[in-house]
Design a protein around this nucleic acid. Structure first.
Length: 279
DNA sequence: ATTAATGTTCAGAA
DNA sequence: TTTCTGAACATTAA
């Protein structure tokens, strides 16, 4: 379930394509329903063919390949998508291939088991519009603590739910939201407008810390084993999880209460009711 | 055999 | 404006 650390790991895994020249973009033979690719693959291919790759960026939970003419080829993994340069986990879920020359790696692949992910090519203008539309907030690793507190304290929803809202801050997903709030000592059901400045400072600190450490470990590969880096190797941060998917286990902070699982917005939240305060 | 659960994003509605 | 719900899809566990 790629969140910021996993997508950043994918980005770093394909950095060596910088300077490469695109030979072709194509759909791959795949027994599943085709994923969304915009514009249509033949048009997309025409536009990227011969383009030199300037650099590889990340926008929230998306990998952004920037072309010489500033067109952006965007990989959005959603639930189970992977950006690979190594052989994929299975051929029947391989969805897209970008062939390259003048590069140490000859191709970038997009593999997606569930097929909720997508690939798109945006002009510079379309990309700038996306950045300024307000649908995507500042990146979790770039937002200033003051702006973070300001944005969140205005809202009335529960803090865990707010952290998942990509228009507030981009990059945090379900797994890291639980981890961040546990380390910060903040209850996931606390209302945003009831939290103090100090609590927001703690949440922000822990958010940056958790995401950076998770990147060092190349993200989290859960028990289903889906997430992989660009070389098809699993991440290592799952061994550092303090609460996620650990319902019933003793809280690593207080070592007294056990970790609870609750449902917020139809998704699991894990926390310790002794260590995490509503205000 | 059916159903729930998994977790990201968007459209549409409240 | 803000918040909430359901759908997109594939696979596994109960």
């Amino acid at each position: 379930m790629p969140e910021l650390p996993e997508v950043e790991t994918m980005r770093r895994g394909i950095l060596e394509i910088e300077g490469a020249v695109v030979v072709a973009a194509e759909r791959t033979a795949c027994s599943k329903r085709p994923i969304a690719i915009t514009p249509r693959i033949d048009r997309l291919n025409k536009r990227v063919k011969g383009q030199k790759i300037l650099r590889v960026d990340r926008l929230g939970k998306r990998v952004v390949v920037v072309m010489e003419n500033l067109d952006r080829l965007i990989f959005e993994p959603r639930m189970t998508g992977l950006v690979l340069i190594a052989d994929p986990p299975s051929v029947e879920h391989l969805r897209f291939r970008l062939t390259l020359k003048k590069s140490p790696v000859k191709q970038v692949l997009f593999w997606d088991r569930r097929g909720l992910g997508n690939v798109s090519l945006l002009s510079d203008e379309q990309y700038q519009e996306k950045l300024t539309s307000g649908k995507l907030g500042p990146d979790a690793l770039a937002i200033a603590p003051s702006e973070f507190a300001e944005t969140f304290s205005k809202r009335q929803r529960e803090i865990k739910v707010a952290l998942l809202d990509q228009s507030a801050v981009a990059g945090v997903g379900n797994l890291y939201a639980s981890e961040i709030l546990h380390l910060a000592g903040v209850h996931p059901q606390a209302r945003c407008n009831r939290l103090s400045k100090i609590q927001y400072q703690r949440i922000h600190d822990r958010m940056v810390e958790v995401l950076e450490i998770a990147i060092e470990h190349e993200g989290s590969t859960l028990s289903d084993g889906t997430y992989r880096n660009a070389l098809n190797d699993p991440g290592g941060y799952q061994n550092q999880h303090r609460v996620y998917d650990r319902a019933g286990e003793k809280c690593p902070t207080c070592k007294k209460d056990s970790i609870q699982r609750i449902v917020q917005c139809q998704r699991s939240t894990f926390f310790c009711k002794k260590c995490q305060k509503k205000r």
